[in-house]
Design a protein around this nucleic acid. Structure first.
Ligand code: FES
Ligand code: FES
Lengths: 144, 144
DNA sequence: AATAAAAAAGATTTTTTTGTCTTAAATAAA
DNA sequence: TTTATTTAAGACAAAAAAATCTTTTTTATT
């Protein structure tokens, strides 16, 4: 469904969000350990997430990653997926035609419509903070 | 969502199914042209589909691919996806955890549940013949 | 000012996916 | 029986994705 990069990106963001609930800044080593991902690769993905302003980073000793939530500013799952994988999941044709077009539909177009719409809706409405709270409560997990 | 191989596989199968409605056997050159896919790569995918008994092939002059539908035998979208991409889309964890487990859920597990269930349901119930008929009627297309 | 710890940037490697090419096997028709 | 046409099989190549390594930049602490 998502690329490995996107999976790690979501998991990393969720871990940072969870730690930020308690004002904890975390470094890449800790993140990779917490989400069981390759450290250097995860670091690369973090660069994208910082550029996309999904997480905030601080260099130097005591530095690391954090999420500054200024009240209204609430990141949605959608933004991470879009930043890393682009919006092909909702916009692209399920059978790989050059464009998904209502007027020139592929055979599964109308079968996929609902599902893709629900997926988009879910990603657009699910907030990172909401999910991070489940982690904090210990009812959801970021690794096996 | 699906791999390129799977997308080509579905499109190729649908084209064969459409032509089989009129008892036409088609060769790989014609298939690749009809679905706008790389011929040699598509040929490789056809080998998988033949091995999985989704389509039938005949060698030699006048040979090609066809679908023998013996009444009850009705291929579902699901079977093609499973043969090429495996069943990770329904069974695997959306965030890439080693296994998707109700008792040890990732933060998006219950958000994904409905969507994945609907996707599985759709793929399991949608028949190739049904889609091929839309192609035949000219209300669906396999290339731009 | 020197050191150490962290992220950023960029080059490089490995693995997987996508795609091609060549040869072999099957078979219909001349 | 030879030839032509087709799929099958397997080796190979290119591109993309995943992952690593090295160097640079920033910054807190000593
Ligand atoms: S045209 Fe294929 S999903 Fe819309
Ligand atoms: S555990 Fe992640 S989707 Fe079920």
């Amino acid at each position: 469904m998502f690329s490995k990069a996107c999976e790690y990106g979501i998991r990393a963001t969720l871990y940072i969000a969870e730690q930020s609930l308690n004002q904890r800044r975390v470094n890449i080593r800790e993140i990779a350990k917490a989400i069981d991902s390759p450290e250097a690769f995860t670091a690369k993905i973090m660069q994208q997430l910082v550029k996309s302003q999904i997480v905030h980073s601080v260099k130097g000793p005591l530095g690391g990653f954090e999420m500054l939530r200024s009240g209204s500013h609430d990141i949605k799952l959608y933004q991470i997926v879009k930043a890393i994988d682009g919006d092909n999941i909702y916009k692209g044709c399920g059978l790989g035609l050059k464009e998904c077009n209502e007027e020139h539909p592929c055979p599964v177009h109308f079968k996929f419509l609902n599902i893709r719409e629900e997926l988009r809706e879910m990603l657009e409405t699910t907030s990172i903070t909401e999910l991070a709270k489940d982690l904090d409560k210990g009812i959801a997990f970021l690794k096996q």
